[in-house]
Design a protein around this nucleic acid. Structure first.
Lengths: 248, 248
DNA sequence: AAGTGGTCTAGACCACGTA
DNA sequence: ACGTGGTCTAGACCACTTG
């Protein structure tokens, strides 16, 4: 029997079948059995193997499509979601200019450092104090103007080798890179926003006066299994840009 | 034939039945035919009237439940969503203290004014320049500490009578109030966040030094028909609080 | 032509809340 | 006991993509 195809439970207090199926699918995806971009089994084939009707499989798949874990393509199949630049732009990137237009900024890496996790980093990434981390600093520019100073912290253990062997630049869509190089897929992120004063360094990098108000975005990015894998602190000049959020 | 119960279209290029049904339900709700809190027809009854199966009605209803337009209660029925304080807190209010706890702040109204719409107000509320608006200013306090200075702008036409006849206070959950007193239901909101410097007035009201960085949240609230009905500009002291956002 | 997802039916039975 | 939503089946046919 294929992995993950244990018999479904049908007892009295059992979870609904579609919930069991959904969990089985998530398990196969987060285990790496079905990597991002791969087509999963068709609904009919799954239904036959599991001994349920197509509608039940369909409900499980629909749940995962709605949470951006799977993507359906009519006539083709259902695929494990990937991090392309569209997803980065429309899903995880919230800065727009004041006319409402979004564009992924170019980025310039200032440096890679290997350090022990600060108290904040350890707390946010659920690491023990002093765990080895990689710290990346970069400046992101929109339409040529430096707009965001960003510090990215990653657990060394999960991202071994990053920034070594003369690597001095990074792709613009980092989550795609994490997925392809390290097999780490970001699924959710939690952001905290505050208004702060630019430090002297911020001001120099963004060509602003010291103590200009900046929007600080502290983001923790989580995998499908809710494991925090990236801490990103972005300090943004919101003179001509803003953070946009739509609430349904 | 009841309103909204025109025959469903089944032609070749017709929309799927569940889309037609969903739109019919939205029309009945946004027209006020089914006000907030009312139970809608049961799925089976709707299916019989429309000559479709329960599953088709169910799919339409499910879509509306997922967009917070309807609420299902097993054993009871399906109800038009209302703005209770829970929804305000968990859905529209994004300020939390730095331990991650949310609590609706108390509010003190500083004044109601009737004015002509500013250029910004007119643009955001899609009004002609100079349209009459009501402007409300208030300070919101969390755990006793004044934390947010807020200016709320409403089209006079839709909120006639608000702030008259000696009315000097407002309920804490405004959207509930709009719904109950004016029959206006907020469905979506769009927020733009920036970091700004506290004005002298902000600083005085929030008991801060002048020019402290504040988080400015500019929110436009829309009805089900996507009509903007409220502009709210909140300036928040983020010394001990932050704006939180989760991205799935 | 064959295989995929997308819509729809006509039933069945279960879980829940009210009376 | 009754009516509600919640789950599930076993089929059918359509729309789309690829060989």
């Amino acid at each position: 029997m294929k992995p993950g195809l244990e018999a479904l439970s049908t007892g009295k207090d059992a979870m609904p079948l579609y919930v069991q199926i959904r969990r089985m699918l998530v398990a196969r995806i987060s285990s790496g059995d079905w990597p991002p971009g791969m087509a999963i089994q068709s609904e009919i084939s799954l239904a036959r193997e599991l001994g349920v009707s197509q509608g039940t499989v369909r409900k499980a798949v629909t749940d995962l499509v709605e949470t951006n874990i799977l993507r359906r393509k009519q006539g083709l199949g259902t695929f494990v979601a990937t991090h392309d630049s569209d997803r980065a732009l429309f899903h995880f990137f919230h800065i727009a200019d004041d006319d409402g237009h979004k564009a992924l900024p170019e980025s310039r890496v200032l440096g890679f450092r290997r350090n022990k996790a600060s108290r904040l980093e350890a707390a946010r990434l659920q690491l023990k104090a002093g765990t080895a981390v990689i710290r990346i600093e970069r400046v992101r520019s929109i339409a040529g103007a430096p707009t965001v100073v960003e510090t990215i912290t990653l657990p060394e253990k999960l991202f071994a080798g990053l920034g070594k062997n003369g690597e001095t630049e990074l792709p613009n869509t980092l989550y795609e890179y994490y997925e392809q190089r390290f097999g780490i897929t970001i699924h959710t992120s939690q952001e905290r926003l505050k208004a702060i004063s630019a430090t002297a360094r911020d001001a120099a990098l963004l060509k602003l006066e010291a103590a200009t108000p900046l929007l600080e975005i502290e983001r923790v990015a989580l995998t499908l299994d809710h494991i925090p894998v990236e801490l990103r602190v972005s300090r943004c000049n919101t003179r001509n840009h803003h953070y946009q959020n739509t609430i349904f």
